[in-house]
Design a protein around this nucleic acid. Structure first.
Length: 278
DNA sequence: CACCAGACCTGTCCGC
DNA sequence: TGCGGACAGGTCTGGT
């Protein structure tokens, strides 16, 4: 479900409600979603401790605790991290409850239960491979045109799959990749190495644009995504490619198509994004 | 290394 | 109405 814009909105919306609050106890309704450490140790590392800060890296949400422990969430497809004020009962597919010292509850919910949760000492965060190997993020100083050109060079993998690889660029997912490729006029089946330096510059600008627009719209809610207060985003109203198959292209009017690339549903305009280009 | 199917899960939608 | 299959915002593993 959530990509970088959604995780960033979740982080921002949770912060005023849970930062500085103490976790009174931990109720594991579905233990198998805890990937590290054991359920008993997970509870021991968190219960009674204060949440001192909230960070995000790629699609990971990290709650910093007062005992040098990070409570790490990866929401996968349907995970939700939400604050319920005092007197409001958590609803939905709740898997873990963290009652707080203000009488409210920080809850993790997840329909498909694919999400992964860790309570790591900060010096053992490297054990989370996906987190340790993340590439630079859109909108950050580390993400530059030169960097993008350098990682594209010579790659034979298709550009769509390439952009979904979190080790190259952190935070892009299926929606925002389709959007960035559409705005850049690049067919998703082209090889990464075929993207010209000029196209790479467009792609760089548009990756930053779609991520930034997604954040400004409060994220994209197709079905499950909600922010830390249970609110939907609105960026689904401003998409150009994702979910628009069968509809006219917003640039040229050609009927948009949907294909499968690397096992993922992929939306594009056959006129604006031509395969033989490049 | 590239690439794909399958696995992990539940829910929804579509066609018959 | 019921059932089977495909599909869903993600990532990892194991096979060819």
């Amino acid at each position: 479900m959530p990509e970088m814009p959604e995780l960033e909105i979740i982080r921002r919306s949770l912060e005023p409600n849970i930062k500085g609050k103490r976790i009174m106890n931990v109720q594991l309704l579905l233990k198998r979603q805890i990937k590290w450490p054991s359920p008993e140790d997970f509870i021991a590392r968190l219960a009674g401790h204060v949440i001192t800060g909230l960070d995000r890296r790629g699609k990971y949400l990290l709650l910093q605790m007062d005992n040098n422990v990070s409570l790490v969430f990866h929401l996968r497809m349907t995970g939700q991290a939400c604050y319920f004020p005092p007197g409001v009962e958590p609803v939905g597919h709740v898997r873990i409850l963290f009652p707080l010292d203000d009488g409210g509850i920080f809850a993790y919910a997840d329909t498909r239960t694919l999400g992964t949760i860790y309570a790591m000492h900060n010096d053992e965060l490297w054990r989370i491979k996906g987190l340790a190997e993340l590439g630079p993020e859109p909108l950050s100083d580390d993400f530059t045109v030169a960097y993008l050109r350098s990682i594209l060079a010579g790659k034979k993998t298709r550009i769509k799959s390439f952009l979904l690889n979190q080790a190259y660029i952190a935070g892009l997912g299926n929606i925002y990749v389709d959007e960035a490729l559409f705005l850049s006029g690049i067919h998703p089946m082209r090889t990464a190495g075929s993207v010209t330096p000029e196209e790479a510059e467009k792609l760089y600008i548009n990756i930053n644009k779609v991520i930034s627009d997604g954040i400004n719209d409060g994220g994209t809610t197709f079905r499950d995504y909600r922010d830390g207060n249970g609110e939907k985003g609105s960026h689904q109203q401003n998409l150009f490619a994702y979910g628009r198959d069968g509809k006219p292209c917003r640039k040229c009017g050609t009927i948009m198509e949907k294909i499968r690339v690397g096992g993922r549903g992929t939306h594009f305009c056959p006129s604006c994004q031509q395969l033989n280009k490049g």
